[in-house]
Amino acid sequence: MSTTKATPAPVSTGEDYPVRITGFWSGRSELIVPALVFTLAGFLTYGTATMEVMGKSVPGPQFFPTIVCVLLYLMAGIHTIQILRTRRFPQADSEGHNPDFSSDMLGDLGDTEGKSIYGAASTPTSAGKRRAYSDWKTMGMVIGAVAGFILALPVLGWVLSAAGLFWVACRALGSKRPLFDLSISILFSSLIQLAFNAGLGLNLPSGFLEGLI
């Protein structure tokens, strides 16, 4: 056993992210979450109030949703205040951070002497190139591919629409070999169609190719 490339690296070598405060929304884009939650809670409140209750059991079907509503309003309210009071910036090293677990608690349990088990948060500056944290172009392509797949599935059938989805997703995620990808896409979607129809007896739509394959 031997090692090459013995470079000590942090958990992941994410680039240091330039963060710039340019206006109200800098570090406050997270407000979209409480906004969504308030909308959802509003819908829930409306649905609960206008519910056509069947049966006379007490407590009825509106009891539990009311508790959930209160929880949502309360937490979304506190969350809004928290974001307004302190701007939040993404961590330089986002990969590997699992919010399911408190890093403070894990740090205490693992006795890491106050060192963060993940990378540190970016410190905001007022200089640096302005660049969105999320790569909206790549994401938009993947979302568009999925939406396109859903629209195309009944018309084009599984093989073609799934191959299209795979191909566009590959391109979006950085593949540089369009022709090679095309063959992989068609192979992959055809194999699934074969396995499903022959092996598991489930029918995937064949679209306008009906009868041909």
Binding site: M1, V142, L173
Partner: peptide
Amino acid sequence: EVLHIASRIHRDETAVRVESKG
């Protein structure tokens, strides 16, 4: 997860691998 990766794949660098032989 796919969408999350899509939003970061062109931004994050990948880690260096240590070879293990034997």
